[in-house]
Structure formats: C-alpha cells, structure tokens
C-alpha cells in the first residue's frame, strides 16, 4: 500500500513538472508563432533563439515590487491568483496521456487517475477556475477590474453551457464518462468524424472559456485596460497568465482526448501521438488569435445564446437520433 502511494506521489510530481515546463514554453511558442505570422522575430535575445525567455520572465516577475491597492479586499485579493492557477493544474490529474507502459518489469499507466466521472470532474473544476478572475476583479477595488470580473463570469457560465452540450455528444457515442474509456472507444473511428459539429462547438466554447483573443472581453486591453488583473503586479500577475496558459494546454489535451482519438495513431508510440495532436490544437488556438479580430461584448453573448446554445441542443438530439437508428 505504502509503495503504491509512493509510486503515485512520484508520478504526480513528474506529470506536474513536465506539464508545467511545457506550459512555460507555451508562452514562448505563442510569442514566436505570433511573431512569424506578423513578420517579426519574436523574442530572440535571451539565450539561443530566445529559448531562455520564459525563465527570464519568471525571474523578472519575482523581482518586481508587489502592490496591493489601499481599497482592495486583502484576503480575496491574495486568494484569486491561487485559484486561477490551482484549478487548471488540478485538471492534469485526469488527462490520459497514453495507455500502459512496462518499465523495470512493472506496468505503469500513463495517466494519474481514471475516476468514473472523469468528464464531469473536468467540467466542474474548469468552471471553478473562473472564480479566480471574478474574485480578482471584485477584490481589487477598481471599477475596470470589477467590470472585467463580472463580464468574465457571465461569459464563462454562458460558454460552459454549449461546451457541456457538446460533450454530451461524445458521451452518447462512447457510453462512458471516464476519459480513458472515451479514448478506448475511439480505437477505430475518431469522434471528430462522428460528431464534427460538436467538435466545432467544443473548440469555440473552449476558446471563450480561455478568454483568448476573439473573446477576450474580461481583459479587454482597449476598454478596460486589462480587466480583472489591472491591479495585480509581480508574480501574482504572472500567476493569472500562467493559469491561462495551463488552461490552454488542458484545452488541447481535452480536445485530443474527446475528439481526436487520444493516444491512438499508427507507427509512433501513443504518448507521442497524444502530444502531436495536443500541440496541433494549441497551434490552432494561437493561429486564430492572429487571424480573427475581437468581437464586441454584445456579439459575444449573442453568438452563445442565439447560435451556439440552440445549435448544441439540436446537435445532441441529432446525434441521439443517428445513434438510435444505427
């Protein structure tokens, strides 16, 4: 028993450190890719090809002065960045990176945990992460921060709906809530071919949940001068962004797990396929940031409530009908 606990602890630390390293380099990747799309170099001064940039950014954020505004709610102000990093980091626990591998004559699973209610856990915890934004905005004692926080909540809960409805299609096709079972059920045909509309809805709502650029209402630079994190400085500010990039990584992993067949693929080992697909989805998320202009606030809500939500509900019915017939 104690050996099992130890193995699990080592695995947890390993998964968290590897994934957090990837997330740190995701910031560099985003700046590089955006740079190449806009015919710039991107960061290229710190280390060869800018490879030490994330570390330099981290050290810089640590060495900056930390400010707490006089009229801020001190406790909640401290709590908000912790929530916004902890929630997406916790989601790493259910991501199935691969099937089993045999090391030193023992079998290891390439996922930390496989609870029966995996996908509900993911939906719940990812919504919990939005508390970071809203509490941060509310506690900073700043009007812009407050508007950013309120907008963030409204957008998160709205897009959560269409995302949950899109996930129902996957559950219909796989008949299980466990992420590992969902991947196993895609051994033949990936879910993206069986439920393409659900895939699009999931990706769009995922982008909205991330507060990424077409939907960056909560932190609108132009109108709210950064929204909910306007009063944050130093590493607390960096934690919000770290949380956001972790969430982006999680979105890539989830899209791969639910729609792109997880670790299934020819020739290469499963875990490599998983990361190829994950980074393809993440690249798509970065690419669309350079392509699409941002939406106005009322259009964001209109897109969800008048288009995505009815489409998602009808899509559940259509998928159910097709599954029942065949």
């Amino acid at each position: 028993m104690s050996e099992l606990l130890l193995t699990l602890a080592v695995k947890s630390v390993l998964v968290v450190s590897v994934c957090m390293l990837m997330v740190a380099y995701l910031t560099l990747a985003e700046r590089k890719i955006l740079g190449f799309i806009q015919l710039r170099y991107g960061p290229n001064r710190v280390g060869y090809w800018g490879l030490l940039q994330p570390i330099a950014d981290g050290i810089k954020a640590f060495l900056k002065e930390e400010l707490t505004p006089a009229n801020a709610d001190r406790k909640v102000f401290l709590l908000a960045p912790i929530i916004s990093i902890a929630a997406p980091m916790l989601l790493l626990v259910v991501i199935p990176f691969g099937d089993t591998v045999t090391l030193f004559g023992r079998e290891f699973t390439l996922y930390l945990s496989n609870p029966d209610i995996g996908i509900l856990f993911v939906l719940g915890i990812s919504t919990l992460g939005s508390y970071g934004g809203v509490l941060g905005g509310w506690a900073s004692g700043n009007k812009y921060g407050y508007i950013g926080g309120v907008r963030s909540t409204a957008m998160m809960v709205s897009y959560e709906l269409s995302m949950a409805f899109a996930v129902i299609c996957v559950v219909l096709l796989s008949n299980s809530l466990s992420l590992v079972d969902i991947v196993h059920s895609q051994a033949g045909v990936w879910n993206i071919f069986k439920a393409p509309v659900a895939f699009l809805i999931f990706l769009i709502s995922g982008l909205a949940e991330l507060n990424r650029t077409p939907f960056d209402m909560p932190e609108a630079e132009a109108e709210l001068c950064c929204g909910y994190n306007v009063e944050y400085s130093s590493m607390k500010f960096a934690l919000f962004f770290f949380g956001e990039y972790t969430h982006l990584f999680i979105l890539g992993c989830l899209t791969t797990t639910l729609f792109l067949g997880g670790w299934h693929g020819p020739l290469l080992p499963g875990i490599i396929w998983f990361f190829i697909k994950t980074f393809a989805v993440i690249f798509l998320c970065i690419w669309q940031r350079a392509t699409f202009p941002r939406l106005r606030w009322d259009f964001v809500m209109k897109l969800e409530w008048k288009f995505l939500l009815p489409l998602a509900i009808v899509n559940v019915l259509a998928t159910g009908f097709i599954v029942a017939i065949f």
Binding site: L4, L5, L8, A9, K11, S12, V13, V16, A61, F62, L63, K64, E65, E66, L78, P81, I82, I83, I85, A86, A87, M89, L90, L92, V93, V94, L112, S113, N114, P115, D116, F121, S234, M235, K236, L239
Partner: peptide, 28 residues
C-alpha cells in the same frame, strides 16, 4: 484509489500557488 492522485495534485496545485504568492511578497 483513483481519488488519491486527485488529492495529491490538489495539494501540489494549491501549494504551488501559495508558495509563489508568499515568495513574491518576500522578494522584491
């Protein structure tokens, strides 16, 4: 048993956040 890693990761995630916030308030 499936929930033990969740407990571990909860500790790691919250610990990471708390330690970073405390450290950054000490340095700087």
């Amino acid at each position: 048993l499936e929930y033990i890693p969740i407990l571990y990761l909860m500790l790691v995630a919250i610990g990471f956040g708390v330690i970073t916030v405390i450290l950054s308030s000490l340095i700087g």
